[in-house]
Amino acid sequence: MAKETGIMSWKELELGNSITRPGNAGELKTGDWRSMRPVTDYEKCTKCGQCYIFCPDMVYKKNAEGYYEQNYYYCKGCGICAHECPVSCIAMVQEGD
């Protein structure tokens, strides 16, 4: 637990306060920041990949059929993907309350 929260004894620190678990920021749920959620209409999607390459949070992954799916754990809801989709098939919808 201490390793995740950083609330740890000085004795547990790695040399020089370094971090030895690469990419462990992936544990952080930045999806909590979101108020709007991007939702893709796969009927219209052309699989062009723009949403994928323009997402600052590496939210999109290509699935077996070649469509790009969001991982909402990280999506901050910035709306770039919706803004950039050439066929406007991503809608930003209000997160449910």
Binding site: I7, M8, S9, W10, G16, S18, I19, T20, P22
Partner: peptide
């Protein structure tokens, strides 16, 4: 490894 990360108040003292 990541060397020289940001130290927030909850770790700087340690």
């Amino acid at each position: 490894v990541s060397m020289g990360p940001v130290g927030m108040p909850d770790i700087y003292t340690e």
